[in-house]
Computed example of a mutant assay.
Amino acid sequence: MTLRIHFTIEDLARTRVAQAPRPLLEVGMALWMLRQPACVGRFGTWQREAFKRLLPPVRKLAVQHPWTGETPEFMLTPTGAETPQEALEIVSATPVKQVQTQVTRLANRYPTTLDWTRRLGVARGALRQYNDLLRVIHEQVITPYWPQIDTLVTAERAQHMQRLTEHGVESLFAGLDPRRMRWTPPVLELAYPSQVDVHLGGRGLLLIPTLLGGPFIGVDFFNTDDAEPQRWLSFSVHHAQQFLSPPSPPAPGAPQSLSALLGRTRATVLWAISQHPGCNTTQLARRAGIATASASEHATVLRSAGLTAAARHHNMMLHTLTAAGHSLLSASA
């Protein structure tokens, strides 16, 4: 099955990359993942840690969240809000009729005996209680990782914008999710659960990074600037799993085998980037215990060898590992 997003020239001109993940989109993904059987691989550690962090009553509500395959649109779509407080204020003000329409549609698809879901579309107090659930989940299983998430997303967004500036929209789309996205002008094709064609109608597309999900198409019903709301598409942040694990004590340093291969200082620089992806050159120098000029030189060599990547953010270079760099570190561990 394929999702086909059709672009016009106007759509391409108005397509942009959001500067940060959207709080409630992450909460929606978190609710979905908390209801799944034990995760393996990328998100297994995060899921186990999330259950530990949630208090039993909240954990029970999260697991009993009735809509297995979907989340109400009014919860996901305030894409202009960049803080959970702002997003929840917007959601709290959602017209009851709009909430009722979406809840009824979900209740028809996913029948439930939970009384609070029926009241959600009728009583404003029930919506406030639902907001409290979303707020607590964000605070307990998303917020602890947010500073690292912000660093990673800033670095990755800079890379995407560099691709767009230097190589055009085809390079931008190809870099978002090479395994699942394909640009066949003027259509962006994605693997999807159903066959869907979406025409953007000249309003463009908002690309939103997500830590816990993959490609997902939505509509911002809270965008009132235009007669029709703008579509948005989420995409997975690369190396997100590094920040979805509990903090670990700092490693003693680069493995000896890596130092023997690259030299002690260069191995230390590579190791420091692996431990602090998205760090700038000054931070890298401090963590490697060397001068900034030396850190810049070693980072340039590692980048030329394809072991790291760098993206410019304002007047800084932000450094991350490439797949080759991860493979080398894994092999030498």
Rank of each mutant, 00 (worst) to 15 (best):
L212N: 02
S194R: 15
T224P: 01
F173P: 05
D225Y: 12
G204I: 04
F173R: 00
G214V: 03
D220T: 11
R180C: 06
N223Q: 14
V187A: 10
T224C: 10
P193L: 13
R203W: 11
W183Y: 09
P209H: 08
Q195S: 13
D220M: 06
H199Y: 13
E189I: 08
T210V: 05
L200Y: 01
W183A: 05
R182M: 04
Y192F: 14
L176M: 08
M181C: 12
L212E: 00
G201N: 04
D197W: 07
P186M: 12
M181T: 06
T184S: 14
T210C: 00
G218E: 08
S194V: 14
D197E: 15
V198E: 09
G175S: 08
A174V: 06
T224Q: 15
W183V: 04
G202R: 08
G201V: 04
L188T: 00
G204W: 03
R179G: 12
L206Y: 05
P185N: 14
I208D: 01
P178C: 09
P186H: 10
P178W: 03
T210L: 03
V187T: 13
D220H: 02
L190F: 00
L207I: 07
V219I: 15
Y192D: 07
P193V: 08
T184H: 15
T210E: 01
M181K: 08
D177Q: 13
D225W: 09
D177Y: 06
S171L: 02
T210H: 03
S194F: 11
G214S: 10
F221V: 15
L200I: 06
G175C: 06
G213D: 06
P215F: 01
G201Q: 08
L200M: 13
V198Y: 01
I217K: 10
F173W: 11
D226K: 15
Q195C: 09
L212W: 06
T184V: 14
R179L: 14
F222R: 07
G175F: 00
P193D: 09
A191C: 10
V198H: 00
F222C: 09
R179P: 05
R203P: 04
F222Y: 15
L176C: 06
Y192Q: 11
